[in-house]
């Protein structure tokens, strides 16, 4: 990804501007950068919709496409990602770019990366990636991922860029996992993060994205990051920090002070709620239920009207 998508502040944004709303779009999440505190997007009203259409910055998060996963009987991960991307393409408000929070592939195979690139690339949107652990299990242990997505990144693929007055930071916490441990950022990346944030105004809205949650969702299943506290300490002084993760294939949100944590659904398969199963294995569900668990049916747009008609579905 390019280092700087856009310098300076987009017109109409004030220093209080932050990520305000998100639209569950397909399996992605549409984020809008405009004034206020992050809040749930079914609160999106006509005024906000109008603001979006006037050119406020929006971007989309997709996650855990797991191309190569073939345990569902009737659909493949290619099918479900294609369906999600079709919904993205049908959005009346075109996002400025997408972020993918990892596990693009299931087995890090070239053909899987190829399929993902072809389907996601059909949007014509720029995509900022971070790897999931499933993207680093080629024989070269990550070489295949870096060959495709490593340009302009450091280390195992971490990077930062600015867009619309927001500073975006993509972190990698899926390398060098230790027995019994959780996600891992490592000293080198933390030192880079410290440097990246130094001298930045505390009023700069920050979006951090990484594969494994940077907060303890359910450590028993590895759903957390051992050294995340060090990263969050560096981010504490900023007025608006939004942390976007994947990995757990379901939506979980938490607000803590100025930090909003959010995990995205997978486009491939759901995983159980923490504690509702013995282990976090894939939930193999009938095809007619799968879509709702991937969030593919959660948004309707009434095109041509000022108001976005959003049908928010319950999580299965």
């Amino acid at each position: 990804m390019g280092k700087d998508r856009e310098n300076g502040t987009a017109p109409g944004l004030t220093r209080r501007h932050a990520l305000e709303c998100m639209v569950w779009a397909g399996t992605g999440v549409l984020w809008t950068v405009s004034g206020g505190v992050p809040r749930s997007l079914n609160l999106l009203d006509a005024a906000e919709a109008a603001e979006i259409s006037q050119g406020a910055t929006t971007f989309l998060q997709i996650s855990d496409s797991h191309i190569g996963f073939d345990k569902e009987k009737q659909v493949t991960a290619v099918d479900t990602l294609t369906e999600a991307i079709d919904k993205v393409k049908a959005l009346s408000v075109k996002p400025a770019f997408m972020i993918h929070t990892g596990d693009i592939t299931h087995l890090s195979k070239n053909g899987e990366f190829d399929d993902a690139a072809r389907i996601i690339g059909s949007t014509g949107l720029d995509v900022a990636y971070v790897p999931g652990e499933h993207d680093l299990i080629d024989p070269g242990q990550g070489k295949a991922y870096l060959a495709r997505y490593g340009k302009g990144t450091l280390g195992a693929g971490w990077h930062a860029f600015d867009h619309g007055g927001v500073h975006f930071i993509g972190l990698v916490n899926v390398v060098d996992l230790k027995a019994g441990g959780l996600g891992n950022l490592g000293a080198e990346q933390l030192a880079w993060l410290k440097k990246d944030l130094e001298g930045r105004s505390a009023s700069t809205p920050i979006v951090v994205f990484a594969h494994i949650p940077l907060w303890s969702v359910y450590p028993k299943w590895g759903w957390g990051t051992d050294d995340a506290a060090q990263a969050l300490a560096l981010l504490k002084r900023f007025g608006s920090v939004t942390v976007l993760n994947g990995h757990i294939h379901q939506i979980v949100q938490k607000v803590e002070g100025n930090m909003t944590f959010h995990t995205a659904r997978s486009t491939a398969f759901p995983q159980p709620r923490p504690g509702t199963a013995e282990k976090p294995g894939p939930m193999i569900v009938p095809a007619d239920q799968l879509c709702s668990m991937l969030g593919l049916t959660s948004v309707d747009f009434t095109v041509g009207k000022e108001r976005l008609a959003i049908t928010d579905t319950t999580l299965a």
Binding site: L107, I137, K178, A179, W221, P280
Partner: peptide, 26 residues
């Protein structure tokens, strides 16, 4: 190792050797 795949390791020295899953370290 996907479903049905296997891997063989030989052990020539005595001792206790711990191992884990590189994807799911728990």
């Amino acid at each position: 190792l996907d479903t049905g795949d296997s891997f063989t390791a030989a052990f020539t020295k005595p001792g206790s050797f711990t191992y884990f899953c590189g994807l799911h370290p728990f």
